[in-house]
Amino acid sequence: MAADVPTPTADLLDTVRALPKVSLHDHLDGGLRPETIVEIASANGHALPTTDPDELREWFRTAADSGSLELYLETFAHTTAVMQDAESLARVATETVLDLAADGVVYGELRYAPEQHLTQGLSLDEVVLAVEEGFRRGEQLAAEQGRTIRVGTLVTAMRHAERGLEIAELALRHRDAGVVGFDIAGAEAGFPPTRQLEAFRMLHEGEFPVTIHAGEAAGLESIREAVAVCGTQRIGHGVRIVDDIEVLGGTDDAGRPRVRLGRTASWVRDRRIPLELCPTSNVQTGAASSVAEHPVTLLKDLRFRVTVNTDNRLVSGTSLSREFALLVEQAGWTLDDVRWATTNAARAAFLPYDERIRIISSVVEPGFAAAQGRTPRHAAG
């Protein structure tokens, strides 16, 4: 479990924090500051497990160390409870952008489910507007602090609900005001992505990007459905793709592990479909045994389009810098591997092509080159 994963050394964590990073899979309601939760909960009367911010931070992490996605998701009752009015939503959004910028993230896509923020009378559109106001304020404040960050929004539909089409319409209404993509999330077992097929058809007809949580709690079939039936451009988590990879032992002529790929794994790799992998979170939910043994390293070595993400920074007690630092210490990654995964994430961002290449060539490559004392690489398409 995550409690057994050592904290990376301070020097390594500082080194990675200074590098430019791209985050694609980060839930807004999973990354609040404990101090903010305590303050808003006190004002609106929501009862918390503890009102001490440090104790609350530890409570979230230990409560999430369940080995079950369903139990992991229960922790969100406390975060969504303090995100039910426009002022609180904007505040949380602003603080999230500042926290990401402080961690060296230069481009981030943050996702949340507007349908979970309606208990105090906000409409779906008012929820989106409040969050976008917070994101833009966060970008402005970060710039004033000397940190450049850009944030895009992924609007999420909860897979157990029946509002997928309505949320897809919401995403399309706000596509020119900060919303860059659509997602489905929540408990996977019993709620396959094909339940939202009408929503995906609308989004594809509207030429709007889609990512789908798949292959985390559910198995290979959820990935196959997300890709082959629902036409997703990215896979949220996707760690169970390893169920379709037979490791034969030894290495091939290129020095990569000898494997036999099944049809779904081949399709995902050959079409360069990005995987939004979240090592610490996957350990907490039982999708992986440890960071050291997490399939992300095998998938990296096999040159799947791997990206590394946090999922939920508060709930998992992590940051993007920490995820990379743990992979370096526990799984043998190098800073070149970190650069490679970061470039993958920039290429996979739901941004226009020219903007993705600009992030790579003007921000990511120079940042890594400066840290490693070398000449920046050319940002190929």
Rank of each mutant, 00 (worst) to 15 (best):
G152C: 07
T153G: 08
L154N: 13
L154Y: 13
V155P: 00
V155F: 02
V155M: 02
V155W: 02
V155C: 01
V155I: 15
V155K: 01
V155R: 01
T156V: 13
T156N: 08
A157E: 05
A157T: 09
M158E: 06
R159Y: 00
R159A: 00
R159P: 00
R159Q: 00
H160P: 07
A161M: 13
E162N: 12
E162T: 14
R163M: 11
R163Q: 11
G164F: 09
L165V: 08
L165Y: 04
L165F: 07
L165M: 06
L165P: 02
E166T: 05
E166I: 02
I167R: 14
A168C: 11
A168K: 09
E169P: 06
E169M: 11
L170R: 09
L170E: 05
L170T: 06
A171Y: 02
L172S: 08
L172A: 08
R175H: 06
R175K: 13
D176Y: 11
D176C: 10
A177S: 15
G178T: 06
G178L: 03
G178F: 00
G178W: 00
G178S: 14
V179C: 12
V180W: 11
V180K: 15
V180N: 13
V180E: 11
G181H: 10
G181E: 08
G181C: 11
F182E: 03
D183C: 07
D183E: 14
D183P: 00
D183H: 05
D183T: 11
D183S: 06
I184L: 15
A185Q: 05
G186F: 00
E188H: 03
E188N: 04
E188Q: 04
E188M: 02
A189V: 09
A189N: 07
G190V: 01
F191N: 15
P192V: 03
P192E: 07
P192S: 07
P192Y: 02
P192G: 06
P193I: 09
P193G: 08
T194D: 14
T194H: 11
R195D: 00
R195E: 03
R195W: 10
Q196A: 05
E198K: 14
E198P: 01
E198L: 05
E198Q: 10
E198H: 09
E198S: 09
E198D: 14
A199K: 03
A199N: 00
F200N: 04
F200L: 02
F200T: 01
R201P: 04
R201M: 07
R201N: 08
M202P: 00
L203I: 04
L203T: 04
L203M: 05
H204T: 04
H204S: 10
E205T: 13
E205P: 05
E205Q: 15
E205N: 14
